[in-house]
Design a protein around this nucleic acid. Structure first.
Lengths: 240, 240
DNA sequence: CCGTTTATGTTCGGTATCGTACACAACTTC
DNA sequence: GAAGTTGTGTACGATACCGAACATAAACGG
């Protein structure tokens, strides 16, 4: 297994000039993120950030009554723990591994040192944070105006973009938690998509058969977020 | 009218050490923001940022079908135009003056110069941006889980926190646009609050009679956001 | 192989919000 | 003070989603 793991599998790290990446990489530690692990809890002091490579992580808010909502999803295009460089140290959200995989862990101390240099890393992190802002805002809009069917499509597409292959390991129950709706609502919506031949699922495995079909059926929110990520992140490479 | 206007009416500016504030102030220009003015439109290149003193500005997303939602509200505790220092230059949202008043305008060029110094201004702006992130995330949660009644309370409280006095100039129609619900829904919710003796309104003027009552009736979202702002922003002054 | 757990399917009444339509009342304009 | 505009009140059926209860069916563990 040669070159199985490389920091450049993460987009933000890949966007760094060689010398910066080399300096940073010395401090990175590859970690395995099992499904369901919480990288941090609401309000807890965060000690490190994570650059996912193959893992996908959800940012969730949990209400006093126990109900929850996903407000953003982070994969190999991003970083978990923006509050460490934004200055707040903690956030009211939780970060939970939605799809098992790997990530590079970076101590908060080293992150802050690098951030204050004001170089490419700072630039990349801030641009990513703006993309994250857009994703959260669009989630707010989507929660207000769109149907569960549309939101399920959006969610599948966002996850798909952060995975290799076309299969997700995820029960309807968990998707319901993410979307903040009932499990039955997801069953129904997923049923629609399956009858339409867009997906095929069974017991926690969802295979996407017709990606274009999902894109046609979802709301504009997916496209807005995707476009904004494409606008903000490729531009990274033009910085130098 | 002595001392009618002072940059320190804005919290972020007030948080700067004297020498920084003095340097920055030379470039600030006081502007009047009339009700309904758009400080920037979706996707348009932003040339300046605004530090409100007495004005309140809503960040709105508008959908293809014309419906809209407020995703955050900014008053004298914040700044309009975070994308200028985050690096994206534009955002998909609009910024509309919700309550007429004043703000200090700062050219993007000067902002960027100051930001790259990495001093107190950068620190303050990033912390504020994190607070904004929290507000957006909580809006997403609230849109999913809470009733119009609760959201109206939250909205009134957030506006009240950014105003002097207890009266808002705002029609139910406009509030409905902000919350992303029908005007009739707001009429009904406002009726509930009025019968309960919490507010009194007529033709675009809303007087809050019982603030504590509103706090009791709203969802936890208001408190979460408020607490997070209090945590992130007072801490600014402990930076030096 | 059998019992248990886990994932999904189905039903049913309840409710919040929607979309639409229209009435009325207050302020504005001429 | 008549006419128009603007802000609010009310009523109606339609519908998307909820909460709860229960049914089936696939995987798992002994």
């Amino acid at each position: 297994m040669t070159a199985a793991h490389d920091p450049r599998q993460n987009y933000l790290l890949a966007a760094l000039p060689a010398e910066d990446l080399e300096r940073v990489s010395k401090r990175l530690k590859l970690v395995e993120l099992p499904l369901g692990e919480a990288l941090y809890e609401s309000g807890s002091h965060q000690r490190a950030v994570y650059f996912p490579t193959t893992a996908i992580v959800s940012l969730l808010y949990t209400l006093a009554d126990g109900s929850s909502v996903e407000i953003a999803v982070v994969g190999n295009e991003g970083i978990i723990g923006v509050s460490l460089f934004m200055g707040g140290e903690t956030t009211p959200s939780r970060a939970v591994v939605q799809s098992a995989g790997y990530a590079y862990r970076w101590q908060g101390k080293f992150l802050k040192e690098e951030f204050t240099l004001g170089g490419p890393m700072q630039h990349v992190l801030l641009r990513y944070t703006q993309a994250l802002l857009t994703q959260m805002a669009q989630t707010a809009v989507c929660n207000r105006h769109h149907s569960v069917d549309q939101q399920l499509c959006r969610w599948l597409l966002l996850s798909l973009d952060r995975l290799v292959g076309n299969e997700l390991v995820m029960t309807q129950e968990l998707i319901a938690n993410m979307l903040g709706v009932r499990r039955e609502g997801v069953t129904e919506a997923a049923g629609h998509l399956q009858s339409a031949g867009l997906i095929k699922y069974s017991r926690g495995r969802i295979k996407v058969l017709d990606r274009a079909g999902l894109e046609a059926r979802t709301c504009e929110c997916y496209a807005v977020v995707k476009k904004e990520f494409d606008r903000l992140l490729p531009a990274i490479t033009q910085y130098y």
